[in-house]
């Protein structure tokens, strides 16, 4: 079986794979940064005292979290142009990933903020600290610690989710495997290489998660 495995073709297609890897990496980074902004805004809206903002944020978060990412990507890619909005594939993909991850990040950040016991906030109020001061000195430093590890988890999910962009013909890593399959009919070589490269990204991110867990999570017991 292994005898049929063609390493030469992998080498031959390496420039393509590296381009795919680079694109996957760039798509993920850009989407993640945008998703962080969307997520923080959505979380702020979710915790806002204005009902309308809260409602908008809840509708956004729930509709994203309850529908498949592929459906969202198809909606933006096929649906929006029929409504008169034409956006190139790559941008469409990034927008879809941004909105999708943003909803999850909003919930992660919210969990971090609400994990700070109310009593501490009351203690802050009692000593005359303003809302901004309470957020800055009491809530956020503690929320950050519990938020960063799940955020890195979400970043890893985002990298893997970006594979779905291959379905709207964005040349990212998974798409390279498909090219090798359609041009040479070598799916084993193609997708194994793709998988190994995803693994490389994963192992670049994983130590960060471990490090942040050690550094940032404030532990109750010493």
């Amino acid at each position: 079986m292994l005898i049929n495995f063609n390493f030469r073709v992998i080498w031959e297609y390496m420039p393509l794979f590296l381009e795919g890897l680079r694109n996957t990496f760039l798509i993920s980074i850009v989407s993640l940064i945008l998703a962080l902004m969307v997520g923080i805004l959505a979380c702020a809206a979710r915790l806002s005292r204005w009902k309308l903002l809260r409602a908008v944020s809840i509708v956004y978060i729930e509709s994203i979290r309850s529908t498949p990412l592929l459906v969202q990507i198809y909606f933006f890619y096929f649906g929006l142009p029929t409504l008169g909005l034409r956006v190139p594939e790559l941008e469409t993909g990034i927008i879809a990933l941004m909105l999708n991850s943003g909803a999850y990040i909003a919930e992660i950040v919210r969990a971090g903020i609400t994990s700070v016991p109310n009593g501490q906030i009351e203690a802050g109020i009692s000593s005359g600290l303003s809302y901004t001061q309470r957020m800055r000195f009491i809530v956020l430093p503690q929320a950050l610690g519990v938020t960063v590890p799940p955020l890195l988890g979400q970043a890893i999910v985002l990298v893997k989710d970006s594979a779905l962009l291959s379905l709207i013909s964005v040349l990212e890593l998974t798409r390279c495997g498909q090219e090798l399959t359609s041009e040479r009919f070598m799916p084993a070589e193609g997708f194994l290489t793709v998988a190994v490269l995803y693994l490389c990204i994963y192992y670049c991110l994983k130590p960060l998660a471990g490090w942040s867990q050690k550094k940032l999570i404030f532990r109750e017991e010493y």
């Binding site: 009593g119 501490q120 203690a123 009491i138 503690q142």
Partner: peptide, 8 residues
């Protein structure tokens, strides 16, 4: 009652 010191 529960002190509510800032643990960090």
């Amino acid at each position: 009652q529960q002190f509510h010191l800032y643990p960090h």
